[in-house]
Write a protein that binds this DNA or RNA. Structure first.
Lengths: 229, 229
DNA sequence: CCAAAAGTGTTTCTATTACACCCATGT
DNA sequence: ACATGGGTGTAATAGAAACACTTTTGG
């Protein structure tokens, strides 16, 4: 087979960078690390790494997330390819950005300190290397869109959560307040939550009922017209 | 500067593929070419090419579109990175897919024959090489989403168009009929069209008034909550 | 008994849908 | 005169938004 056209092409470095979102109870946060190698060593950065030649790009993203956080089977979605020639000061590196949603409570604190990782509220993101700030911005916009039509908000909460918690989550993502009554009515009308008998008693005297997301029920619906907000 | 971490990484081929949409009066079409080199030479394919080392990925997409169609200053948007190791039978090539919207009438027929290019209605796309069918599918879904909130449908029409034409366009994109009265009311209520005195007389005895998209007016609106459909 | 958060309905308004007839013109 | 596609309004329904009081319970 004549593949000479391929042979004469220039190869380049391909990286992935991950915007890792967590929910801090009131606001959305992103997990950042102090970069461990040159250039820009010691500066705040997204988690990233290079794509190996015999590795799917999606797999590379999952691997990097696992290496740096210890977490696997995490919700991840490809965001965008950042491909400007000058984006990385050390040479031509095209980066595929992914965003991940994790339950901040399950995240192992030990790993945080290992890699000098820290959670930053989205409105207090420090200066980041390269085009990482743009990546975070784009991820935030994408999350806002996506969460309106897809049940991915639950990835950010524990399996059991209360309606006030869920509302705070949406308020955090949209950075705007929601009406409690309208919110509960709407979310319950979707018929995808199961109410538990148990109550969460930490955050109020009265206690709030726990709910769980019922994936089975959701799976049986038409996902086309479903609107969470 | 110590960039040894970069040096030890594997480089790979990066390509772009373009899904080029046009509107055929009744249905959406995609422009495909007969692939001109091995492997899979002579099979139907999206327009594609390799990204050069000193070229932005976006620029590569624009270059390839220009080389193969002669068109420039075309609406283009990055779609998705397709990065499976086995996607190209001749070796590891990661491809960034873009979709483009062009006014089919302005497209130079000569160039079509030069590259053995042809327009195919979306429901009659032939077998395509590699993962190009998936790319087309994803582009179609993205177009449907996007066109509901952004004024990109106009890219597919001549500068002057009639309301029946615009309606047919949306019907083509969504593959479902719309109510004429509801459609005109909605679209006119956005206040982004300028009605001309002139009429289009080809397709009916009575003739239909031409409109143009008023980019100035549109620019002055809040684009956040705007809904075309 | 009081502070703090949970839970719960109704009304108004806005947007969407469904639906049918007359108009202008070229042949 | 008639066939063809263009243009227009209203009523019914559904969804979104606004809004305030009662409940529970730990201290």
């Amino acid at each position: 087979m004549d593949i000479s056209k391929y042979k004469s092409q220039e190869r380049l470095l391909l990286a992935v960078d991950c915007i890792i979102f967590g929910f801090g109870g009131k606001q959305m946060k992103a997990l950042l690390i102090k970069r461990g190698f040159q250039p820009e060593k010691g500066k705040w950065s997204l988690m990233g790494g290079f794509v190996n030649k015999n590795e799917n790009v999606d797999a590379a993203a999952a691997r990097i997330l696992r290496q740096l956080t210890g977490l696997k089977d995490i919700y991840m979605e490809q965001l965008h390819c950042f491909g400007d020639t000058k984006r990385d000061s050390a040479g031509r590196v095209v980066s595929i950005a992914y965003f991940a949603l994790i339950n901040i409570a399950e995240y192992n604190e030990q790993l945080t300190s290992d890699h000098e990782a820290r959670w930053f509220p989205l409105d207090k993101i420090p200066t980041l290397i390269f085009d990482h700030k743009q990546m975070v911005q784009k991820a935030k916009e994408r999350l806002q869109q996506k969460v309106a039509n897809h049940p991915i908000g639950f990835e950010l909460l524990p399996v059991k959560f209360t309606l006030p918690q869920l509302q705070s989550l949406y308020e955090g993502i949209y950075e705007s307040p929601l009406d409690k009554r309208n919110f509960t009515r709407k979310i319950l009308s979707l018929n995808i939550l199961k109410k538990l008998a148990e109550k969460e008693k930490e955050s109020s005297r009265k206690g709030a009922f726990y709910y769980v997301f019922d994936r089975d029920k959701y799976g049986k619906l038409n996902h086309d017209g479903i609107k969470f907000l």
